[in-house]
């Protein structure tokens, strides 16, 4: 189900390395509010989304914007530095111990015919899909969404048409971080985590995006499905500890075989 959330990364193209850090923080904030104030983990997103949005907006304004015109590796390194800071801040604040959240809801499950599904998985799946639909609506139906897409396509042209590009970029970045924190919060219901949480998920979501082709919404969903299937099958035949290896193997195979992603391949097949 985490793949549903990885879609978001794909659409917004905010694959910045600091995302791994914010994902981890989303999980920690949820855990921290739960363990100190007994805040229901399901409600944590109500705090996390606005908070992370604000943080993201400020990061864009004061950090990312300053390196925007330079070579791409510069902003990559900046965000990598930010990730290191977040990660090790978490180590200092929360120690390296593995944490997990346990509430009655989280441990409950439902029987659907022969299979048993945990309630939190269903909840996360539904919440992920809702977030996705909300995002899609925002991007296609609202004035702001159109502005974001315009800026993504051509920053200069957008500026000429009177869009406040700086503000839009800040909002988009904030949105990306907020979604990431939201995802982290949801994932904390399913998995236990430590400050290094996020790295393998970053890899997976990247793998999904490459699978699906870098620019197509449907492709990303498709990639998520393909990877989930590959992992499910892989686990049957190899040690569970190698599960994370699967996404990487898939990634390499896809890159070698279909450099344009599966969506790109289908597109070229259709054309032929």
């Amino acid at each position: 189900m985490s793949y549903g959330l990885a879609l978001i990364y794909g659409v917004l193209k905010v694959i910045n390395l600091a995302n791994a850090g914010f994902l981890m923080l989303g999980a920690y904030v949820t855990w921290w509010m739960w363990s100190t104030w007994h805040v229901e983990p399901l409600l944590a997103p109500l705090v996390i989304v606005p908070l992370f949005f604000g943080v993201g907006f400020l990061i864009e304004k004061f950090l990312v914007r300053r390196v925007l015109g330079q070579e791409p590796i510069v902003s990559l390194l900046l965000l990598f530095g930010l990730w290191l800071v977040l990660q090790n801040l978490a180590y200092t604040l929360f120690t390296g111990d593995t944490r997990s959240i346990e509430t009655p809801f989280i441990d409950s499950s439902v029987h659907l015919g022969p299979i048993q599904i945990a309630w939190p998985r269903i909840y996360v799946f539904v919440a992920g899909v809702l977030a996705l639909v909300a995002l899609q609506t925002l991007l296609t139906r609202t004035q702001l969404g159109r502005a974001i897409r315009a800026v993504a396509q051509d920053r200069d042209a957008a500026k000429i048409t009177g869009i406040d590009v700086d503000r839009v970029m800040g909002i988009a970045f904030g949105l990306g971080i907020a979604l990431t924190g939201f995802a982290g919060s949801l994932l904390s219901l399913l998995f236990s985590f430590n400050p290094d949480f996020g790295r393998t998920l970053l890899l997976k979501s990247f793998c999904i995006i490459v699978l699906g082709g870098l620019d197509s919404f449907v492709g990303v969903a498709f990639g998520a499905l393909a990877l989930a299937l590959a992992e499910a099958f892989g686990v049957r035949y190899m040690a569970a500890s190698l599960q994370n290896l699967i996404s990487f193997v898939v990634l390499v195979v896809v890159l070698v075989a279909f450099p344009k992603g599966i969506a790109g391949m289908i597109r070229s097949l259709r054309r032929a």
């Binding site: 950090l63 300053r66 390196v67 510069v74 390194l77 900046l78 990598f80 530095g81 930010l82 990730w83 290191l84 800071v85 977040l86 990660q87 090790n88 801040l89 180590y91 200092t92 390296g96």
Partner: peptide, 18 residues
């Protein structure tokens, strides 16, 4: 201090890039 070194390097990295 454990992990403080990486925290410091993260900050240093950001400062250098900026």
């Amino acid at each position: 201090f454990q992990n403080l070194d990486l925290l410091a390097f993260g900050l240093l990295l950001m400062a250098i890039v900026l």
